[in-house]
Design a protein around this nucleic acid. Structure first.
Length: 580
DNA sequence: GCCGTTTTCGGCCCGACTGTTTTCAGTCG
């Protein structure tokens, strides 16, 4: 059983306990445990015979460790089974509807026997809900609308789409006079791969208490609003046409730092921070860090002031997951995180020789314009016929052409010659060794034969890694490949072997999906892998995808030293596995 | 159910918004 599954089952148990009106603190420990399990890089299923290691995880005690062992061994646990007999698994879906919380789910179940979305819809349309306490027509309409939205779109939104949307909305909000800045908070600011909603914080003279009402009106009447959810004194919530929920909050400058801290989250990080505040005699809210005894403000205007007042170094948003960052901030051991400015090269790029849209020279100029010191051209090879992949003869000509451009750039940027070689079904590469020997960068990627069994896929990738000419393992989880599920193989074993052999592991930020999750990146670092971040550029604008991948590197606590794109061109070449 | 610089019991984060119960419970982040 995978960690994500264990986490989901624990979280669902927490939902069931809430419906059962159990002790809220007990419920919270199930949620905490679920979060903790999800963040682990080792698979807990391998630890069931060593419960001590489970107990070492913060938030997991004796009882929870026993629960996890039970889940891994039997697929469930006694309490969960009891709750599922008492209630219905479909009730968990109901919790996903807006304004449907555990109390309401329990109420409609006991009063009407409603346990799933379809019967809830029927009951609502037949007017049965209106007789229930705390139910009026507005509540019923809200639920019906919620069911409609739930069926239309449920899920999360990609970080690049959400960023673009946030920028569009911010521009509209800034049109109002007296607005200084609009900042995205929430999981977007934390750099998560996907976001569930958008949090925008607005400040400026117009957001002071006496004027804020006008700003609220301005935001609530933005033309792109599809559905207004709520409008308060300093908050507006709405849905866009694509279903994305946007929460906009207007805040006076004096408390902007506290608000930014608060709404950036994560929830678990904030809870831990507030516990710390209380121990120090403070109370932390979205308005300020204040003394508990006389309510006097200790810090509020900037995040750094708040963290410092709590005896902590400033914690970058990407680290705020209550995953050891608070302890590290206290001990001054936070890592010097990698930053977009550290990146000096991109070593996975395509040209018109295969399926790219620009020439070698155009790509080189674009990389130079990004401020890079090096670029590697890595077109597809012959096995990918649909991309016009190169065979050995064309590859050798292409290498010569790349060398020519490298000379023409006269040292302003180094252009390395490479190829994104296809890993075949038997684990061999689809170009001759003598051709591969002429390249600086050989990326090996799996593009075909998705349906191989787990063991065969693992063996296939391991065999490719053994090839002494392969220097970078390309998008190792295969998540790039459109509309396909990620490969199913033993990632940990592959990463271990890459570390042993000095094969660089790629974090490919080409969309539609980022390649390695922050958890897998953390695992790669723990196992001693060198990492390369690349946009897999097929056009000169694709280099712009770099920031979204950087966010994942930061979430994995990576420093410039961990990532070979931060090196000088010479250091970069030396960092690669030596050629035979 | 977890946890310990007020330790093995008694705590456990904070506030806004909504709808409808004329005083607040439930939901949400």
């Amino acid at each position: 059983m995978e960690n994500v599954t264990i986490a989901r089952l624990l979280d669902e148990t927490a939902d069931l306990l809430e419906i059962d009106a159990a002790d809220p603190f007990r419920i919270r420990s199930y949620r905490r445990a679920a979060e903790a399990v999800e963040q682990q890089t080792t698979q807990l299923a391998t630890l069931v015979d060593e419960p001590k290691q489970l107990l070492a995880i913060a938030g997991i005690g004796k009882g929870m460790a026993a629960n996890i062992v039970e889940l891994v061994k039997t697929g469930s646990m006694p309490m969960r089974e009891e709750l599922l007999l008492k209630y219905k698994p479909t009730m968990l879906d109901l919790l996903k509807l807006p304004s449907m919380g555990p109390k309401t789910v329990a109420l409609i179940w006991s009063a009407l026997g409603v346990a799933d979305i379809d019967s809830l819809e029927t009951a609502a349309k037949e007017g049965k809900l209106n007789d229930l306490p705390r139910f009026g027509q507005k509540q019923v309409d809200k639920i019906l609308k919620g069911i409609e939205d739930f069926r239309k779109n449920s899920g999360r939104y990609r970080i690049d789409d959400a960023t673009a949307t946030a920028e569009r909305i911010s521009a509209l909000i800034r049109e109002f006079p007296g607005i200084e800045s609009v900042t995205p908070a929430g999981s977007l600011r934390r750099g998560k791969e996907t976001v569930g909603d958008l949090d925008l914080l607005v400040t400026g003279p117009a957001c002071e208490t006496d004027r804020v009402a006008e700003v609220v009106e301005h935001v609530a009447s933005l033309p792109l609003i599809a559905n207004l959810i709520a409008k308060g004194q300093n908050k507006v919530s709405f849905n866009l046409r694509n279903g994305l929920q946007v929460d906009v909050r207007m805040l006076p400058r004096a408390s902007y730092g506290a608000a930014l801290q608060y709404f950036t989250g994560s929830k678990m990080h904030n809870v831990a921070l507030r516990q710390r505040a209380i121990k120090m005699g403070y109370t932390l809210s979205e308005y300020a860090l204040a003394r508990m005894d006389d309510n006097s403000v200790v810090a509020a205007a900037s995040e750094a002031e708040i963290y410092n007042a709590l005896g902590l170094d400033y914690i970058a948003p990407e680290l705020r997951e209550n995953n050891g960052e608070i302890e590290a901030a206290q001990n001054h051991t936070l890592p010097g995180l990698i930053d977009l400015r550290d990146i000096r090269g991109d070593v996975h790029a395509h040209t018109t020789a295969s399926d790219g849209k620009a020439t070698i020279r155009e790509m080189a100029e674009a990389a130079l314009a990004k401020g890079y010191s090096f670029l590697a051209i890595t077109d597809h090879t012959k096995n990918l016929a649909m991309t016009n992949g190169l065979d050995d003869a064309r590859a050798i000509e292409h290498i010569a052409a790349i060398r020519e451009v490298d000379r023409a750039m006269e040292g302003r940027i180094r252009v390395f010659a490479g190829m994104e070689v296809d890993i075949l079904g038997d684990g061999t590469l689809d170009l001759e060794d003598s051709t591969l020997a002429q390249m600086d960068v050989v990326i090996g990627s799996v593009h075909t034969l998705f349906n191989q069994p787990y063991e065969e896929m693992t063996d296939r990738i391991l065999r490719a890694v053994e090839n002494p000419y392969l220097r970078i393992l390309g998008h190792p989880t295969g998540r790039l490949l459109l509309a396909r599920e990620p490969f199913n193989f033993d990632l940990e074993r592959v990463l271990r072997r890459c570390a042993e052999l000095g094969v660089v592991v790629e974090h490919n930020t080409g969309m539609p999906r980022l390649d390695l999750s922050d958890r897998n990146l953390r695992l790669a670092k723990e196992l001693g892998c060198r990492i390369s971040i690349n946009t897999d550029a097929h056009s000169i604008t694709d280099f712009d995808q770099m920031p979204f991948g950087i966010a994942q590197l930061r979430r994995a606590w990576l420093t410039p030293l961990d990532v070979i794109n931060t090196y000088t061109p010479e250091e970069f070449l030396r960092a690669l596995r030596p050629r035979p």
